[in-house]
């Protein structure tokens, strides 16, 4: 591009969006920052509290336990969904009658709303009535999601894998079908094994969509709320209370605006930092 004409009127067209973003994103974020340094006693009375809430949250065992739980959940989700998604995408047909069938089947779980997924799995996992719960109990595993933390985690992870692996599959599949046939022909002439075709052709070509997949799955699983809340309500005990569930408990259950605001800012910083690290590492060697 040798020459671009600049028209200052363009700013005028951006202005409404700017105003909208200011009103629904920037000012609320600043309000959260504002609450995080104050103590409120209801009746719209606020008192200056400085960095006290941040100190309290950073030293709170409850927050540390929740954060650990959340990190564990996200790690498991990524470790299962990414390899599984890529593997399914590799086995899907590239052309013919079965392509739309596979795509629609894959897209179905993504179309179900979060709270419906939670309710569905809640019933599915009932130990006496639910298909999953009754079957597992029939096999002799004393499965009860509402009293056993391990069972609750098992169900929660299975639910997330069911709901979101499709996203990884669809993204990887889009990456795979965009590889021209010439690459595979060249590989066949060179006598490349299936493994090296995957390692040197398919994986590099999927890199960008996988970057998106990792980012989306990381952010979504780190801020997941509805599905585990409907499924287990954070229980049994606190064993499936993830960060956002705890945040809602503090902010809306106990109405402790200050600590909730401080916690959500720390939460935000964690998501921002990790997303930046992932993105930077995965696009490091690309030309800018």
């Amino acid at each position: 591009m040798a020459h671009k004409t600049e028209n200052p009127r363009a700013w005028l067209f951006v202005a409404p969006v700017l105003l909208l973003v200011a009103f629904n994103a920037f000012i609320p974020l600043m309000a959260v920052i504002n609450y995080s340094v104050q103590e409120s006693f209801g009746n719209n009375l606020f008192f200056w509290h400085g960095i006290g809430w941040f100190e309290q949250i950073m030293n709170s065992e409850r927050f540390q336990a929740t954060l650990l739980r959340q990190g564990f959940f996200t790690f498991i989700i990524l470790a299962i969904e990414l390899p599984l998604g890529v593997a399914i995408a590799l086995t899907m047909p590239k052309k013919g009658f079965w392509v739309p069938v596979c795509l629609v089947l894959m897209a179905l779980p993504l179309l179900v709303p979060w709270n419906v997924v939670g309710a569905m799995w809640n019933i599915f996992a009932l130990p006496d009535l639910g298909l999953l719960g009754a079957t597992l109990n029939g096999f002799g595993w004393e499965y009860n999601m509402t009293s056993d933390p391990f069972d609750a985690w098992f169900t929660m992870i299975l639910m997330d894998v069911w709901h979101w692996t499709s996203l990884v599959v669809l993204l990887s599949y889009a990456g795979l079908v965009s590889i021209p046939d010439a690459f595979y022909q060249a590989a066949r002439i060179d006598g490349a094994s299936r493994l090296s075709v995957f390692r040197f052709i398919e994986l590099p070509k999927m890199k960008h969509v996988l970057t998106i997949a990792v980012l989306l799955r990381f952010m979504d699983s780190f801020k997941i709320y509805t599905e585990p809340f409907v499924l287990t309500g954070g229980g049994p005990g606190n064993s499936t209370t993830l960060l956002s569930i705890d945040l809602v408990k503090i902010g809306l259950g106990q109405f402790d605006l200050g600590p909730a605001a401080a916690m959500s800012l720390i939460y935000f910083l964690i998501v921002l930092t990790f997303s930046w690290i992932f993105y930077t590492l995965m696009t490091k060697n690309d030309p800018m």
Partner: peptide, 28 residues
């Protein structure tokens, strides 16, 4: 490869983390 905006972002994020970790490990 960073531009000056990237460096601003990294420095702000790092600054906030240093303050938070100070509160967690050393206190106000």
């Amino acid at each position: 490869d960073t531009t000056r905006g990237d460096r601003l972002f990294i420095s702000i994020i790092g600054f906030l983390w240093i303050n938070l970790l100070w509160l967690a490990l050393i206190s106000a």
